[in-house]
C-alpha cells in the first residue's frame, strides 16, 4: 500500500509539470481562440535563452529577469507581426501561423544559443527523501511548489484585476469586448506575455530535469492529453487534467505495465484521452456552452 501511494504521489508531482505546460495553451486558447502550436517552442526558447544568459555569467535572478523581459518582448512582437495582420482570419489560418512561429522560435533559439544539450542547474538537487516510509524526489516537490505558486498567482490575476477581467471578457465574446472599448491587441499581448512567463517556468523546471535541448519543445505534446481531459478553456481543468495524467501514467506503468512488457507510460495518456474524448468531448471542466433563446 505504501508503494501504491509512493507511485501515486510521485505521479501527481510529475503531473503538476504537465499542468504547467497545458496552462499556457489554455490561456491563449481562451483569449484568442487560437490553438497555439508554438507553446512547446516557447518553452524551449525560454529555457535556451535563460541558459544562454547564465553561460554569459549573469547571476541566476538577473538571467531570470532578462529572460522574462525577452519573453514579454517576444509576446509584443508576436501580437504585432503575427496575430494583428491575421485578425478575422479563420482559426485554421492562425493555427498554421503558430506552426510557423514554432519553427521560427526553435530556429532562432538554437541559432542564437547553439543546439548542443546544456545542463541547467537551478540549485535544487534531485535528492530522495523519506516521509512516512515513502521515498520522494525533492526536486519534484520543489517543482510542484513552483507550479502551484504560479497557478495561484494567475488565478488571482484573472479574478481580481481589471486586466484579468478584460481577459475573461475577451475570452467570452470578442465583439462585445470591442464594443465596451477593450482593445484586443493589448489583451492578446498580455496573454502571450503570460504564456511566455508560464513557458519560462516550465522551461526551467523541465530543462533542469531533462537538460536544455530540442526535445524540450516536445513536452508540449504531453500537454495534449491533459487538454483533452481538462478541456481547452478551463484553468482548473488544465491543473486537474495534468494531475490525472501524471498519476495515471505512473500507476499504469508500475501496475499494468509489466503485462504489456513495460514502457506504457508513453502512450497510456493518449489512450486515456481518447477514451475520454468519447465520453465527454468538452473535457472535465470545459466550459459548458450556454445556450439560451
Amino acid at each position: 500500500m505504501t508503494f501504491f501511494f509512493e507511485v501515486l504521489i510521485g505521479g501527481l508531482l510529475a503531473g503538476v509539470m504537465y499542468s504547467l505546460v497545458a496552462l499556457g495553451f489554455v490561456m491563449i486558447f481562451k483569449a484568442s481562440g487560437v490553438f497555439n502550436f508554438a507553446q512547446g517552442a516557447l518553452v524551449l526558447f525560454a529555457a535556451l535563452t535563460f541558459v544562454g544568459f547564465m553561460e554569459k555569467g549573469l547571476p541566476f535572478w538577473v538571467a531570470m529577469a532578462v529572460t522574462l523581459a525577452v519573453m514579454m518582448g517576444s509576446a509584443i512582437l508576436i501580437e504585432r507581426f503575427v496575430l494583428r495582420p491575421l485578425v478575422n482570419q479563420p482559426p485554421i489560418t492562425l493555427f498554421m501561423a503558430t506552426i510557423g512561429l514554432s519553427f521560427l522560435l526553435e530556429g532562432l533559439g538554437q541559432g542564437l544559443w547553439g543546439s548542443q544539450v546544456r545542463a541547467l542547474d537551478i540549485g535544487i538537487e534531485d535528492l530522495p527523501f523519506d516521509v512516512l516510509g515513502m521515498t520522494f524526489s525533492k526536486f519534484d516537490f520543489f517543482a510542484a511548489g513552483c507550479a502551484a505558486l504560479l497557478v495561484g498567482a494567475l488565478v488571482l490575476f484573472f479574478n481580481k484585476t481589471r486586466v484579468g477581467l478584460a481577459l475573461r471578457a475577451v475570452a467570452d465574446d470578442h465583439q462585445a469586448a470591442l464594443a465596451v472599448g477593450i482593445p484586443l491587441q493589448f489583451v492578446w499581448a498580455v496573454v502571450w506575455a503570460v504564456a511566455g512567463l508560464v513557458a519560462l517556468v516550465a522551461g526551467l523546471l523541465w530543462g533542469s530535469r531533462l537538460g536544455v535541448q530540442f526535445s524540450l519543445s516536445l513536452v508540449a505534446l504531453k500537454a495534449l492529453p491533459v487538454l483533452i481531459l481538462g478541456g481547452f478553456t478551463s484553468i482548473a481543468g488544465a491543473i486537474v487534467g495534468g494531475l490525472i495524467i501524471g498519476a495515471s501514467e505512473k500507476l499504469a506503468e508500475v501496475f499494468i505495465g509489466p503485462y504489456f512488457g513495460g514502457a506504457i507510460e508513453n502512450w497510456f495518456p493518449y489512450m486515456l484521452a481518447l477514451a475520454f474524448l468519447l465520453i465527454r468531448p468538452q473535457g472535465l471542466f470545459g466550459e459548458k456552452i450556454i445556450e439560451r433563446v
Binding site: R162, A166, R168, A169, D172, D173, Q175, G181, I290
Partner: peptide, 18 residues
Amino acid sequence: HCFEHLTVEENLLTGAHT
C-alpha cells in the same frame, strides 16, 4: 452579447475598462 461566463456585476464592470 453579454459575457456569458462572467457574473452580471462583472459584466457591468467590464464597461468601465477604459
